[in-house]
Simulated scan of single mutants.
Amino acid sequence: MVNQTSITCSKCKEKIAYIPGVYAMSCQIICVKCGDKPSRRKKTKQSNIATAASNYARVRGGIRKDIHPTYFFRSPWEANVARVFELIEATWEFEGTEFLFKDYNTSPYKYIMDFEVTKALKSKQKDYPIKFEKAYYEVKGWMDPKSRNKMRRYKKNYPQQAANTIMIINRDKLAVKFCEKSGFRYMFYHDVEKIFKPLIPNWEGR
């Protein structure tokens, strides 16, 4: 008996039966009904999240002279958040606060906070739907296992500071679930971008 498998036409959704080995690649198969070449790959939300994480990891780090002469931002997300703080005339510091994890035999042994905002006047933000406050802010484009482990240790060892920490995250279920389960407050980066990008000439990103 010949083993057959099937592939779905991406255009007309017709099921096409074929014999593996006869066609080396799915691109050699043509739908009889509509003439399209179907694809065996199905794009999922998880693959979209992975793509976003990959893009975030490859972005250019460096000094942005329009923000600060010495601060080294690792991503456009961090740089853009700093530009927002400048726009609302907040008093802030970048990577100036270090939290040490003592009595651990494995890494991470410390956590360096992205931003500490020590002053953010409501009067400077009255025209914006999103409000920033006196708090710690951590920008997370991708909530990978290493980041989650670091945030858990931070929460356990510095509960008071963690309660005053706001995560700026990508809009994906994994990041949201982690923040809600761990008790971290959060906002979505793309909500910040939607509001402030038109107001900031040097905003990075599409």
Rank of each mutant, 00 (worst) to 15 (best):
R152N: 14
Y56G: 02
K122I: 12
R40F: 06
S39H: 00
P38F: 06
P159E: 02
I130M: 02
R152T: 14
F101I: 14
Y104P: 00
K150H: 05
K102Y: 15
F99A: 02
L121I: 03
V176P: 01
Y56W: 15
P20L: 07
I7D: 05
D103E: 10
I169N: 05
H68E: 11
Q161M: 03
C12I: 10
M113N: 05
K65W: 15
R148C: 09
K155A: 09
A79H: 07
K33S: 06
E78S: 10
P38Y: 02
Y18S: 04
Q46L: 10
S10L: 06
P159T: 09
E14Q: 11
E98H: 03
K37V: 13
N170I: 01
M25Q: 13
N202I: 04
I30C: 00
C179P: 00
I166A: 11
C179D: 00
K15N: 11
K126W: 14
R64P: 02
G62E: 05
S6E: 15
A82Q: 10
Y154E: 01
S123P: 01
A90P: 01
D144A: 13
Q125A: 08
N164G: 08
L121D: 14
K155T: 01
R185K: 14
C179H: 00
T44Y: 13
S47D: 15
S182K: 09
C12S: 06
M143C: 07
G62T: 07
I19Y: 02
I19H: 12
T106C: 08
I49S: 04
K37E: 00
I7T: 10
S26R: 00
Y128I: 01
L87S: 03
T8W: 01
T97M: 06
P201Y: 06
A120Q: 02
E89M: 04
E93T: 06
F196M: 02
V84R: 04
E193Q: 15
T70K: 12
N105R: 12
L174T: 15
Y111Q: 06
M187I: 14
S75I: 08
